[in-house]
């Protein structure tokens, strides 16, 4: 909601204002945390789809557990990892509502792996916004399933950081889910630059379209920063996404019902695993 006393200059058009699907509550997220950007993109897409009044958010456990304070939407807060199951229950009761989960990498790719896999197996018409910042943020910076090899966290400490022999390898959710027929749209974007953010927004829109047109589950993985957990400045953290995360988590579309033919061919050429 725009402040009352603010006056838009005469003879101008709006380029950007806070989307209606966001409240005006200032978030608790750390300075520079890209959760704020992800929230904004989802809210912009919901506004553009005119879906705010029929949307239901399922919030996870993690930094974004308080999402219900920031989205101007009906919300159910789900137990850790269970958002896709809660969303399944909601969508089955209200098939014409726009139901989506917003989850971090601990919530979705650690404790909640079975739930996201089987929501995709069932082809639930829900949309999943998956924030991959390679760490457990809310609890103070522990290793997550997406933590990179060698990356230091409070549970993958110096000198080795995450060691494959002891803690295995980063999980690539998009590649995994793209093998499931029930997944209609699977894409990975990044919030590390305006250009990537614009592309991420297109992915988010498509993931909602997958739901609205009933094709199946739509999921967008967003490479995000946790500058406090990574012990970097916000600006450096975004650079770290490009330099360190993208090589492990390649960006792109892994499954797209709408352009299955064309896209699959392009993906095949570029060596990215086709859906």
């Amino acid at each position: 909601m725009v402040d009352k006393e603010f006056e838009r200059p005469k003879g101008t058009e709006i380029v950007y204002e806070r989307p209606k699907s966001l409240t005006d509550v200032v978030t608790h997220y750390c300075p520079g945390c890209t959760h704020g950007i992800a929230h904004r993109l989802v809210a912009e897409v919901l506004d553009e789809l005119d879906a705010r009044e029929r949307a239901v958010l399922v919030a996870p456990v993690g930094c974004s557990v308080l999402a219900y304070n920031y989205f101007n939407l009906d919300t159910q807060q789900a137990a850790h990892g269970r958002a896709p199951a809660v969303a399944t229950g909601i969508k089955r009761v209200l098939p014409d509502r726009v139901v989506f989960t917003y989850q971090g990498d601990g919530d979705l790719a650690a404790i909640g792996t079975a739930e996201i896999v089987h929501a995709a197996v069932r082809g639930e018409r829900i949309t999943v916004i998956f924030i991959n910042n390679a760490i457990f943020g809310m609890t103070g910076g522990q290793m997550a399933p997406t933590t990179l090899l060698g990356q230091e966290t409070t549970t993958s400490p110096k000198p080795t950081g995450r060691l494959a022999e002891r803690a295995g390898y980063p999980i690539r959710v998009c590649e995994m889910l793209s093998q499931l027929d029930g997944a209609a749209y699977v894409a990975r974007g990044s919030l590390s630059s305006p250009q990537n953010i614009a592309k991420a927004k297109r992915h988010i829109r498509k993931a909602f379209q997958a739901q609205l047109e009933g094709h199946g589950l739509g999921i967008v993985e967003l490479l995000s920063s946790c500058n406090v957990g990574w012990k970097m400045s916000p600006v450096d953290a975004l650079k770290w996404i490009d330099s360190h995360m993208v090589p492990v988590f390649p960006l792109g579309v892994f499954k797209d019902w709408s352009a299955a033919g064309v896209e699959a061919a392009r993906l095949a050429d570029s060596g990215v695993a086709a859906g």
């Binding site: 058009e13 806070r18 978030t27 950007i37």
Partner: peptide, 26 residues
């Protein structure tokens, strides 16, 4: 120039951006 890139980067919707409507379109 009202391009809006700053608002696109801002995690806290601090920034509002407007642009003069070009005379022709006006």
């Amino acid at each position: 120039t009202g391009c809006g890139l700053c608002a696109r980067m801002c995690p806290d919707t601090v920034i509002r951006v407007y642009r003069e409507v070009p005379a022709k379109a006006g």
